[in-house]
Design a protein around this nucleic acid. Sequence first.
DNA 1: CGGGAAGTTGAAGAGCGTCAAAAGTAGTGG
DNA 2: CCACTACTTTTGACGCTCTTCAACTTCCCG
Lengths: 258, 258
Amino acid sequence: MSDLGKRDAFLKPSAGSEPLEAAQSRSFHLESPCHACPVRPLSVCNSLDLDELQHLERIITRLSLDQGDPLFDEGEPANHVFNVTGGCIKVYKLLPDGRRQIIGFLFPGDFLGLAITDEYAYSAEAVSASSLCRMPRRDLDVLLDRFPKLEKQLLNVASNELAIAQDQMLLLGRKTAKEKVASMLLMVSKRARDRGQTDNPVFMPMTRSDIGDYLGLTTETVSRTFTQLKGDELIAMERGNRISLANLEALEEIAEGY
Amino acid sequence: MSDLGKRDAFLKPSAGSEPLEAAQSRSFHLESPCHACPVRPLSVCNSLDLDELQHLERIITRLSLDQGDPLFDEGEPANHVFNVTGGCIKVYKLLPDGRRQIIGFLFPGDFLGLAITDEYAYSAEAVSASSLCRMPRRDLDVLLDRFPKLEKQLLNVASNELAIAQDQMLLLGRKTAKEKVASMLLMVSKRARDRGQTDNPVFMPMTRSDIGDYLGLTTETVSRTFTQLKGDELIAMERGNRISLANLEALEEIAEGY
DNA sequence: CGGGAAGTTGAAGAGCGTCAAAAGTAGTGG
DNA sequence: CCACTACTTTTGACGCTCTTCAACTTCCCG
């Protein structure tokens, strides 16, 4: 379904929705896929040489998730960290009455699980069929001591995520619905470009409801805003959850709040 | 004004509002204040022993800011990192038309300047009279290579800030005005407690406008919400920007979205 | 005291949410 | 291949929370 998923065709297909961490049973091991990993140049592993990659190799497990499969839930013991290798993962927090805020969408190359607490502070779930590599947190700590480069890289990742989070706060607190949607389209497009994938039309694997919960809006408002942007000929819907950005400059001006 | 400022009475008082980084001219050097620093147990420096603190000593400069003094502006070259030793600093981003989102308030012990970009991604300004120590970013990089403990500590700081940012996204995107205000009161109270200061009544050095720009609300809505919480006898205003939390459990329930 | 900023309160309005229904899309199985 | 179902998306009407605009009050600090 997702073009991101294609590169993971060699992975063992997984069953339907399952209990948390059940994905573990589906994990398996290949001989030396790390140095051939298509997302390595994008990820934290990039800071390691071939020798060090072999250390990594012994520690990681590969998983695949179907659309909608949970990866972990907020409050679970945070025993693992992850690296996304294919597909799209959403990370979210819930309020007791069900209100949901999506903290971010993770794409191939993205790291998941940075935290100092021993429980996950959020839930994670597959937006589309996805693949990840998983590593016990304990082993990561050992690795960080052994390879300072990795620690430096992780600090960079954290700093970068922090900057993204700050942009998102500006969006959530101060932007209008139109500005929010424009910002998100450009952001997803940019991230696809960074990964070397098509950035226009931009592929949006998530539902309207996901988009709303990411932008602090309802599905209805998201839908209406898309209709409005379509009417202004700033975007055009294409089949397969693809949106063509017809007027990039205008979208950027809107996104930045002019 | 601020009780946080008292411990900095030995610092050279600074003049009124000044151009960016002009604070540099007011900086000065003491012999060995690092190991006597009252906020060291709270800050990144905590990971260093006495020897290492002397390295630090040679690198840092101390500044003091008056209320309203800018520390730096978004887009400036990010040449320094900072550690807050007294007072309160607000960090914010602006949209072109003046809409403002406050990213966070920094209190003694807080670190400022984590970033990989070579320009500050936000502006920083003193909420109340404040003191900081400042270090050239270049020197920090050297220090990080020399003292892995420091790097680890910084990664912890970054992870922690990331978790706080994620909570703030939930607040901004999905909480009501009442929930936002209750959340902030509890948060500021908790942070004061962590620093070993009075947590109830909680000292709120920032203006209603600052609070609004932190919570994604207007000053009027903040004011009305305070009035409402007062009417429900959940809080009581005391003189000197202090708010007594009269019903902690109820406030916590509200803040968490029940 | 007195002047200016910050805070409070009121009335009116807008943007987005809520509720409801229709239209589109995808997956399933005969 | 088409019908059936279930879900997602779109659209409409209405309502509510929060904003806007404005006046008034309180609080500081000189």
